[in-house]
Every structure is written in structure tokens, then in C-alpha cells.
């Protein structure tokens, strides 16, 4: 790829009068040596697989450990029968993120975005925006390229792996990618997109990876819900013209250094934080 920072993507887009997503799609087409339309259709397939990961939801499913399952349905029932705190749109995003992340724990088919642990964030935000706000599917696919571009830069200059950078790298990255997508959908400028992603990331800096019994369930599933919400919150801030005081690529640098300095016990090793609480130890013991 021909860019190494978020700012370079924007520079390329501006100098060639392209949209942010077009830069990502075009570079991918060049590197794979195929037409841009083929890349576009490949991404559409990813979106279809995401939608399938939502519709396949089975409220009776349980994960092999028995720790998870059924919570997405609880949220859906609550929304249908109550005046929710967050309103319809956000409630639907919450329950969808929960459902997809639960399905992942239950060995169902999902799309890693950027990882399996954070697979609920992007589908939740994009599918609910498509349905509730009536966006054309093509526009959603474009938004996925926006997300992918942000993800590429995060992977390049920081990390998208919990074992390397803690959960800021997984849920944090997913949230930043989703924030950029939503901002694009809602008509934000390229600067808005960058700042939405940056604000989302800043809200997640330092997040540790300390899952109970080493499984992608606790706290992962509920963090998908929080990551999706954080994406919407950050997009709205950016669309309102709010800017991150620390520029986007510097924040990504901060994320990388926090990841490096984070103790190993909080990077997917199951040896610190939530994973070593009394209850987590009892659960881990009962599973072994």
C-alpha cells in the first residue's frame, strides 16, 4: 500500500480528487492486480457475511464453556417491551453487537473485523444504519473500505492483536474503524472521519486484555457493545466539529507505546486483571 499514516491517505485522496474509501479500494486493487470493481464486490461479500452473522443468531445457543449465550435476546426483549434509555437506534446497535459477539463465542460463523474477539462492533453499527437510516448497500460497502483503511494504519503503526497491544488494539481498533465508517455515512468530511476514529481510539487507550479462563467471552462480548456505542458517540462528536487535541497519527503512536509498556500479564496471557479474580479462578478451575 502506498500510504503509511491516516494523514497520507487524506493527502492522496485530496491530491487525486478521490474519496477516502476510493484510495483504500484502489490501492488494494493495484496490490492484488485486479479491477477495483472486483475488490468492491469482495468487500460486499464480507458485508453479506456480516449480515449473516447477525441473522443466524440463535437465542438458545451456549458457548462450550457455558459462560455465554442468550444476552442479545434479553436486550432485544427489553427494547421491545420498555421505554429504553438509549432510544431505538442505539438499542438496536447494542443488541446486535451483543448477538454477533455471542455467536462468535458459540462457534458460529463471523467476520473478524479486525479480530474475532471484536467481530460484533462493525456489523452492528453498519447493519443497523443500513436498515434504520435507509442507506444503500453500496454506501455501506464504501464505509467498510473507510474502516479497512483505518484498520490498516492501526495494524501498521500500532497493533490489532490483544496479545501485542491489549484490548485497545482489538475493541479499540474496531471502535475507531466503526467511528470512521459512521462519520462517512453521515456525510462527514475526511477530517471528520479521522477525528471520529481518533476520539474513539482515545476513549479506549489502555484497555487491557485479561479474559476469564483465556476465552474470548468475558469481558469480550460486552465490550463489543461498548465499542459500538463508543463509535457512535465519537462520530457524533466529530460531526459536531469537535477535534482531538492530539492529532490522529500521534494518538496511534501513543496506542503503540501503551501497548509496548503494558505488562504481559494484561496481554492475553490470562495471568492478570479479571482473569485472576477469585471468581475467574473458580471458573477456570471448573473448565479444566
Amino acid at each position: 500500500m502506498n500510504y503509511k499514516s491516516l494523514q497520507e491517505i487524506v493527502n492522496l485522496a485530496q491530491s487525486e480528487s478521490l474519496e477516502f474509501w476510493e484510495v483504500i479500494a484502489r490501492e488494494e486493487a493495484i496490490s492484488q492486480n485486479v479491477n477495483q470493481s472486483q475488490i468492491f464486490e469482495q468487500m460486499r461479500k464480507m458485508y453479506h457475511a456480516m449480515k449473516q452473522s447477525i441473522t443466524q443468531y440463535d437465542s438458545r445457543q451456549k458457548s462450550p464453556s457455558g459462560m455465554s449465550g442468550g444476552d442479545g435476546e434479553k436486550m432485544r426483549q427489553y427494547r421491545r417491551t420498555h421505554q429504553t434509555i438509549a432510544g431505538d437506534l442505539l438499542s438496536k446497535i447494542m443488541e446486535t453487537a451483543m448477538m454477533v459477539a455471542e455467536s462468535n463465542a458459540c462457534m458460529k460463523k463471523i467476520v473478524a473485523a479486525p479480530t474475532a474477539g471484536s467481530c460484533g462492533v462493525l456489523p452492528a453499527v453498519l447493519q443497523v444504519f443500513e436498515v434504520e437510516k435507509g442507506y444503500h448497500e453500496d454506501k455501506i460497502v464504501e464505509a467498510l473500505f473507510v474502516a479497512a483503511g483505518i484498520g490498516e494504519i492501526l495494524a501498521l503503526n500500532a497493533s490489532i492483536s490483544g496479545a501485542v497491544g491489549g484490548c485497545q488494539a482489538e475493541i479499540g481498533s474496531a471502535s475507531a474503524m466503526a467511528a470512521g465508517s459512521v462519520t462517512y455515512l453521515e456525510g462527514g468530511t475526511m477530517e471528520d472521519i479521522l477525528h471520529a476514529a481518533t476520539l474513539a481510539l482515545k476513549n479506549m487507550l489502555g484497555l487491557t486484555c485479561d479474559p476469564v479462563a483465556g476465552l474470548v467471552e468475558v469481558p469480550c462480548i460486552k465490550r463489543n457493545v461498548a465499542g459500538a456505542m463508543n463509535a457512535v458517540v465519537s462520530a457524533q462528536m466529530a460531526l459536531a466539529g469537535i477535534r482531538s487535541v492530539i492529532p490522529p497519527d500521534e494518538v496511534i503512536g501513543a496506542m503503540a507505546s501503551i501497548g509496548r509498556e503494558m505488562p504481559v500479564c494484561l496481554k492475553e496471557t490470562g495471568t492478570g486483571g479479571l482473569a485472576v479474580t477469585r471468581t475467574a479462578k473458580i471458573i477456570a478451575e471448573s473448565l479444566s
Partner: peptide
């Protein structure tokens, strides 16, 4: 790395490394 390493792969969960 390509964009489909970021958005993708389509896989059965729960873990890209362990599954």
C-alpha cells in the same frame, strides 16, 4: 497484509489463533 486481513477472514469463532 491486505484489507481483507482487516475486514476478514470469514471464520467460525471464537478465536482467530485458537480456532
Amino acid at each position: 497484509m491486505n484489507v481483507f486481513d482487516i475486514i476478514g477472514p470469514v471464520m467460525v469463532g471464537p478465536s482467530s489463533s485458537h480456532t
